[in-house]
């Protein structure tokens, strides 16, 4: 995982609440056994007028001209602005994979679904929770040319006019994201504690280890 650095980018305003992971990446793409290359299928059913299939070449597919992601003014944007409960529905990690592969590094919303929120950190995406009023404001200001600066170090989102909004993030997630650390390696630093726990449980609850 790459370390998460401070950056400034255009902002795509996707004005919908309760966007579920089926919408972020429709289920037919879950059949892939790879973990990269999902970017072209991000929001597939909203983004294209035809039905997407895995391994399809998307360069010639008919685009939905009304869908915000297709507006040329948002090309290359790395920040997504959305409404509440983003990422609800199935636990598929393909959702953050698709967002990451497309190029998004930060998502701003009044709230996220739990599993999705977790999965973002594991895939180098920073989910930022700002209060509903602030998100409303950002929606009213967002448009062509509007940019925000995301700084995880100082936990702030800044507008070009110098206005900054603070966001909360738990310390260990921040540390891992900033340093691009692998979760498994960190956990294995506690291998002795895991073994000790297991040994104790084998004594106190042996049925948990019984094999038929």
């Amino acid at each position: 995982m790459k370390p998460f650095k401070k950056f400034t980018s255009r902002v795509v305003p996707l004005d919908r609440a309760n966007v579920d992971t089926d919408a972020i990446i429709p289920k037919q793409f879950l059949k892939s056994i790879r973990r990269s290359g999902f970017g072209p299928y991000l929001f597939d059913e909203w983004r294209y007028l035809d039905r997407g299939e895995p391994d399809m070449d998307c360069s010639h597919r008919p685009l939905n001209p009304e869908f915000v992601l297709n507006l040329p003014c948002y090309a290359g944007a790395r920040i997504l602005l959305v409404r509440k409960n983003f990422g609800c529905g199935s636990s598929r990690e393909h959702a953050p994979w698709a967002l990451e592969d497309y190029g998004f590094r930060a998502i701003i919303a009044p709230s996220f679904a739990d599993i999705f929120y977790n999965n973002c950190f594991k895939n180098g995406i920073l989910p930022i929770v700002l209060d509903e009023a602030t998100v409303d404001r950002l929606f009213s200001e967002a448009g062509p040319g509007f940019e925000l600066t995301v700084d995880l170090e100082s936990q702030t989102v800044a507008t070009p006019f110098g206005e900054t909004f603070h966001f909360d993030v738990d310390a260990s997630r921040k540390h891992r994201l900033l340093n691009g650390l692998d979760d498994i390696g960190l956990t294995l630093q506690h291998a002795d504690a895991i073994r000790a726990y297991e040994a104790a449980r084998r004594k106190s609850a042996p049925w948990l280890f019984a094999v038929p």
Partner: peptide, 20 residues
């Protein structure tokens, strides 16, 4: 509870999960 694919890998490798 349900987990994502990187957590599946985490459980396979460590038999543990980091949770709040």
């Amino acid at each position: 509870f349900g987990i994502g694919t990187s957590e599946v890998e985490h459980v396979l490798a460590t038999q543990c999960l980091v949770q709040r």
